[in-house]
Computed example of a mutant assay.
Amino acid sequence: MKNPPTQGQPHPEHPTPSPAERRRWRQYLADEQAEAATYRYLAERREGEERDILLALAEAEGRHEEHWRQLLGPDADKPMRPSLRNRMLGLLARRFGSVFVLALAQRAEGRSPYSDDPNATSAMAADEQIHEEVVRGLATRGRTRLSGNFRAAVFGANDGLVSNLALVMGIGATGVSSTFVLFSGIAGLLSGALSMGAGEYVSVRSQRELLEASKPTQVTLSAAKSLDIDANELVLVYRARGMSREAAEHRAAERMGLYTCDCDPSLSLQPETMEEAGADEHETVGTGLGAAISSFCFFASGAIIPVLPYLFGMEGLAAVVLSCTLVGIALVLTGSVVGLLSGASPLKRGLRQLAIGLGAAAVTYVLGMIFGTSVA
C-alpha cells in the first residue's frame, strides 16, 4: 500500500510529470527567485525592523524556490524569465522602493496560484496568504505617512479635473466664443484652487487643534508628588482617559512612585496613556500649510488640463473632444494611483474615476446646450 504524502510534499504525487507541468514549475521557480530579489531590493532601502521583515520574506520565498528545484531536478537549471508582473516589481523596487511597490507586492501575494495547484504544498499556500498580510502591514505604515498631504493632493487633482471640465463643457455648449470659454476655464482654475487651498488649510488646521485640545498636559507628572495618597485623583484622570479601574490604579501608583500596588503588574501593558499618544494622529492628519499648498497645486494642475485645447487656439467640437480625452487619461491615472496605494485593482479605480468625471461633464454639457438654445 502506498504511503500518503507527508507535509511538504506535493499532493498527489506525479512520478512522471508532463512537459506542461515542468514548464509551470519552472515558471514558479523563476517567479519565486524574482520575488525574493524584490524583497531584498526593498530591504536595502530600509533599516531596523522593516528591513528584518523584508529579509525574512525573501528567505521564505527561497524555501519555496527550493521546493520547485527538488521537483524539477536537472530541469531546474534551465533558465526561464519571471512573469512581466514580477519583472516590473523588481525594476520598481531597485529604482524606488516606495509604498507603491509594497502595494503592488501585496496584490501579487494575494493572487498566488498555490492554493489551486496540486503540486504546491498546503504550507506554501498558507505562506503566501500570510505574506500578503505581512506586506499589507508594511504598506500600511507608508500609507499612514502619506495619508495627510496625499489625501489633499489626490482630492485636489480630481476636483480640478472634474469641476473645470464640467465648467468648460457647460459654457462651451452654450455656443459662446472659444475665448470666452478659455477665460472662464482660467477663472474656474484660480477660484477653485484658492478655494480648495483655503478650505484644506482651515480643515486640517481645525482638526489638528481639536487633537491638540484633546492631548493631556504633563500636569500629572508635576502634581503627583503632592497628591493625597488615600484620595488619589490620578485614578480619576486615567479612568477618564478610557482605562479600567485596575489599570488606572496601577498607572497612578507608578506616577506617585508607589510600586507596592496589589494590582496585577501586567496592567502596565494596558493601552498607553494619552501623554504618549497623539504624535501618530498628528502625522496622519498632516500640516495645514502642507495640505493647503498640495491642494492648491494639484487642483491647478488638474484644472489646467481641460483648458489646454483652448489655450492652443482650438475651438468647437475638436476642442471638446480633445479636452475630454486629456481629462479622461488623467482621471484614469489618478484613480489607478489611488487603487495601487489602497491595494485594490488600479484598473477598476481608474475606470470608476473616469465614469464619474465624464458623467459630470456630460450633464453640464447637456445643460449648456439647453440653456444656449433657450437663450437663442
Rank of each mutant, 00 (worst) to 15 (best):
N158L: 12
R145W: 08
N119W: 09
A166T: 07
Y114F: 04
A173N: 00
Q129K: 11
N149T: 15
D116H: 13
A166L: 11
A139W: 01
Q129P: 04
L167N: 01
V176I: 15
V135R: 09
A126C: 05
R107Q: 09
R107W: 04
V101R: 03
E109D: 01
N119G: 12
S177F: 15
F150M: 15
I171H: 03
E109L: 00
Q106K: 14
T174G: 11
L138A: 00
N119Q: 14
R107D: 04
T174D: 04
L165V: 05
A166V: 12
L138K: 00
A125W: 09
Q106S: 08
F155V: 14
L102T: 04
H131D: 02
M88S: 08
L167A: 10
G160V: 06
E133T: 04
R95Q: 14
Q129H: 10
G97M: 15
L89Y: 10
Q129R: 12
T174H: 06
G90T: 09
D127Q: 06
A105V: 01
S177W: 14
A123Q: 03
L92W: 10
P113W: 03
V135D: 06
L89A: 07
V154D: 05
G160M: 10
L102N: 07
E128T: 02
S98V: 01
M124W: 12
